[in-house]
Computed example of a mutant assay.
Amino acid sequence: MPAILHRPAWALPDSAATPEAIALRLDRRALLAGAGVIAATALAPDIALAQRVGDVPDPSAGLYPAKRNEAFTLDRPVTDEQANLNYNNFYEFNMSKSVARQAQALKTRPWTIAIDGMVEKPFEIGIDDLLKQVTLEERLYRHRCVEAWSMAIPWTGFPLAKLVALAKPLGSAKYVRMETFKDPSIAPGQRQTWYPWPYVEGLTIAEAGNDLAFLVTGAYGKPVAKQMGAPLRLAVPWKYGFKSIKSIVRFTFTDKQPKSYWEALQASEYGFWANVNPEVPHPRWSQAFERVLGTDERRPTLLFNGYAEQVAGLYKGLEKERLWA
């Protein structure tokens, strides 16, 4: 007897997900941000050239495209791939959204990930060895930035819970602290010593174990692009986008709440939890609406970015905490 698939409330049929090939009009201002007088029409070829020059064959390329997990669908079209490739926060390289060219300096092989802290036995593992121990799948997720823009992405990866299981944390561990690479020789933003490098984020063990918490290794049916956080990044779709750490090199299990990069930088604006709530404004702007990247569409922001049914229970008893931006 076939298994019965219980779709969550936010899931709609596959017809709701527009194929990648359908072009969405790019926001001209986003393309020009930080690019001076460079024409938007010239940007994509430049990036393609940089990728051809700087890349070596990705040994994981044969794993893509992965099978889609039909339990994770969308209420909106998938954002056009070029829009996603050309609009990224990656302060390690620069503070604009136009980081794609500079991010090609990132060397993703060899790439070693450390698992340490309150675990049975600390260890290190190469990204390709890690991929041999998990099964990749594709999921359609929404992404909501605290800056009030949003996108919808076909991520490929595996549940963060799988890595937690490999790590074998001690029962006293309450949090997982995640850390990005630090290499100022290739990442000019890291030469700015007033920023709290390396980039750090944290989740509770319960959040990390939620089925929606996803470690990303690919997007759009191929290995994830460098400017999007290759070779390993986080996707937690019920949180604001600054809780989406890129290019992860370390997972540390601890009993102390980690201080994230953004919290260390500006605690009055960015807290630990960073859950999406349209009723709680950022100190400088409203969160009630979001602008869909690549279109002129404005949508009402949804509580927990539309994933409340799956994650609201994580925060029971924490009502006095600063759970939002």
Rank of each mutant, 00 (worst) to 15 (best):
Q51P: 00
Y64W: 12
D58F: 12
A23G: 14
G62V: 11
D55C: 01
D80Y: 07
P45L: 04
P77S: 03
W111H: 02
T73Y: 09
Q51I: 03
L43E: 15
E70L: 08
A66E: 11
G54T: 01
Y91L: 04
N88M: 00
I38T: 15
S98V: 10
A83K: 05
Q51L: 04
L85K: 03
P57H: 04
D46C: 13
P59L: 15
Y64P: 10
A105Q: 06
L106Q: 02
V53L: 02
A50Q: 03
P65H: 14
R28T: 07
N88D: 01
Y91D: 04
A105I: 01
A100G: 07
R76P: 11
D58H: 09
W111K: 02
A66D: 12
N88Q: 04
P57C: 06
E70W: 10
A35E: 14
A44V: 13
A61Y: 13
R28M: 10
G34L: 01
A40M: 08
A66W: 07
S60I: 09
A83F: 08
N84R: 10
P65S: 11
R52T: 00
I38E: 10
P45H: 04
L32I: 11
W111T: 00
Q104N: 02
A44G: 09
K67M: 15
P59G: 12
M95V: 09
G54A: 06
P57L: 05
D80M: 06
A105G: 07
L85P: 07
I38L: 13
N69S: 11
A39G: 10
D58Y: 10
N84M: 13
P45T: 04
P77K: 02
P77W: 07
A103H: 00
N86I: 01
N86S: 11
Y64C: 12
A39M: 10
A100P: 03
Q51G: 04
K107G: 03
L63Q: 09
R76W: 15
A30L: 08
D46T: 15
P45E: 05
V37E: 15
T108M: 03
L85W: 03
P59S: 13
A83W: 05
A42Q: 11
P65M: 13
A40N: 13
L26E: 12
A44D: 10
W111P: 05
L85S: 08
V53G: 01
L31W: 05
A66N: 08
A30F: 06
F90R: 00
S98A: 14
T41N: 08
I22W: 11
A44W: 14
A50W: 00
N86C: 05
G36L: 15
L106K: 01
R68E: 15
T41H: 10
Y64V: 12
D75Y: 11
S96N: 00
L31I: 04
R25F: 14
D46M: 15
V37G: 14
I38R: 15
K107N: 07
V37R: 13
